[in-house]
Design a protein around this nucleic acid. Structure first.
Lengths: 359, 359
DNA sequence: GCGCTCTGATTAATCGTTTAATCAGAAAAG
DNA sequence: CTTTTCTGATTAAACGATTAATCAGAGCGC
């Protein structure tokens, strides 16, 4: 019934000053023709009355809600905090709000979640798709954050380059025997990361790839990755495609009595929150989420603004991904304590290892 | 300019059937008086034209946006995914959208973030406050998720009971020497958890409390917690108030060569995503986020609905926390492999420990 | 003094829905 | 046969902003 809005509306300001509402609108938006003096008076009065424009009314009239949607395959993803924070900040800076949608872990519900956002009339959507999901035509601008290898236009970290950075770091420390750890070979992100790593392994280097989901399909969830044997076989570097898997590897190795980083080095990806608290601190590679979010949101508001300016172009941009080209944001190494130069290439159970390899 | 809305509006349906827009509205909402046949015809036509109501227009008219805001002290909080997902699900079920706000880690910006939400005319706000922050009068319904010890009305897990569950578990395994690990003694949540644990320690039990932030203020961030010495002093149970700290403790102990769980047991709180992937799997206590979210959102929509029904009550409920009483949702133990019965109460460096304590 | 332009403001329509008020007609009551 | 009471619909007025169209008056040239 009575909409509870403490602040006054334009009409209140208008009648308080004996002018018309249109003039108030013009003064506050700076669009029409208003004399400087009156403009100042209006702004002062607005301030005084604590005027807050009704986004609802504005949205109805202009057709723009100034809200964008954020869709992740499943919110429980440990990278979610980083992404959400970056997107929210970028959006807030651009004057947009962020509405979240969750597909409740179910990939088929992703479409439904997106549908809900569209019904709420968001001006655009940022999507982090589930594995290789293709994004259907939504009837609204979309920016996709995934991997440069994903078909279609996307913004993302340069996961391939990130892989190279890790490999360079490990190779530089003298490692020649690598175990690469991924979860699912269907993930473009993981493939890029592994591909990047492989591309920088020197001639004569030995490597082996472990896909956790394949292994678990055989040996059951939470099974051992058999890393102790790998160490016994002479592998010294364990490079995972995510901090989550790196953590698993790190603890499994520690649990088997392998000393990190003296006997083996471990690396991850993404610099998730716990990476700095584990002991020893996990060496990882960080995504520049702020930059990614800025590009994604920027592209989105660009398209949104554009089709307001050129109504004819609307039919072209609408339903099309907002990012014209594929943007690759470089990743940066965060060297902590799980990596060290390889002291003894061969396995030696009680080697009095090297200390203090802090970068 | 031209708002791009593919679906038709009420007027389209109305004129297609030669009736008035009001009748369409009545038919679809089931409120006014419409003959059953015409009602069916209207609903059919709406379906046919792919009609989607304009939430904007509806919001303008009714004064309800059907959106609630979600505010967390900082989104980077590892618990955020769980909370956001639960709130989003509960809200979606109630027909509400969720707008997120981030205070960018800065406690003073919490108010600003909330301000932004209010300006976007959310119908209510769910807040997880930063430490002991008091929530100011917002002019809109609020539900707070924190600790039952927080002054004011809140919904939350029964952290005290959660502490008891952990303590009972450890005591049941024979532990008598406890190290309790928290971050900040100002946190009601952490205090409750520790209080609950203490309340169940048997007579003659020994315990010591470590506050990480205090320690780091002296010894620097990422410093050792000195847990190896604690083990040497005969402590066998390390109970942290968060999985984050438990992880730190676990890896520090493993790093010092202590075998988990043979020589020491470790427990955490919250069942964060990585708790199940570390080796050995972390014993922890899970919050029933779905239940909490349902209560919080339910209370919120209750107040929102109420003051629509009784306009007079609006002045009472507005600006007041939505939850009338303090709701405490029980926590449940998730026993994994970091806890085991204490084999040797005294420290014995190379005890041939107990195996296979899987619950 | 008449027409012209330019400025600074107002009017009024519009976005799409909700809802109180009204109304025409049929059925029931007197 | 008139009056009253329903029923099923329509009208019109909001909600609060934006914006194209209009208008009154001032200034100015000729």
């Amino acid at each position: 019934m009575a909409p509870i809005r403490p602040g006054s509306n334009m009409t209140a300001i208008a009648s308080a000053l004996g002018v018309s509402a249109a003039t108030v609108s013009n003064a506050l938006s700076g669009k029409g023709r208003v004399s400087p003096e009156l403009g100042a008076k209006i702004r002062a009065k607005a301030e005084e009355l604590g005027y807050v424009p009704s986004v609802t009314a504005r949205a109805l009239r202009t057709g723009r809600s100034r809200v964008i949607g954020l869709v992740l395959p499943d919110i429980a993803n440990p990278l979610f905090p980083q992404i959400a924070q970056a997107i929210e900040n970028a959006a807030a800076d651009a004057g947009y709000g962020v509405l979240i949608a969750d597909s409740r872990g179910d990939s088929s519900m992703q479409t439904l979640a997106i549908q809900r956002l569209v019904e709420r009339q968001v001006d655009g959507i940022v999507i982090v798709p589930r594995l290789g999901t293709r994004i259907a035509d939504l009837g609204c601008p979309v920016a996709v954050i995934d991997s440069p290898s994903t078909p279609g236009n996307t913004v993302s970290s340069d996961h391939w380059q990130g892989g190279q950075v890790v490999a360079d770091h490990l190779v530089g420390l003298g490692h020649r025997n690598f175990v690469l750890i991924g979860a699912n070979p269907l993930s473009n992100v993981q493939n890029d990361r592994i591909g990047g790593m492989k591309s920088r392994l020197p001639k004569g280097a030995r490597f082996e790839t472990i896909w956790i989901e394949k292994l678990e399909a055989l040996a059951g969830a939470g099974c051992s990755l058999g890393l102790k044997q790998k160490v016994e076989l002479g592998f010294t570097a364990f490079a995972a495609t995510s901090d989550l898997h790196a953590l698993r590897a790190l603890t499994e190795l520690q649990q088997s009595g392998i000393r990190i980083p003296q006997q083996a080095s471990v690396t991850g990806f993404d610099d998730l929150v716990w990476s700095s608290v584990v002991s020893p601190g996990l060496t990882t590679v960080r995504q520049d989420m702020a930059a990614i979010a800025e590009i994604a949101v920027g592209a989105l508001v660009g398209v949104i603004g554009d089709d307001a300016a050129e109504p004819d172009a609307a039919t072209i941009t609408v339903g099309v991904t907002a990012v014209a080209k594929t943007d690759r944001v470089p990743m940066t190494l965060v060297a902590r304590q799980t990596t060290a130069s390889v002291s003894s290439p061969q396995f030696s159970p009680a080697s009095p290892a090297l200390e203090g390899n802090d970068p």
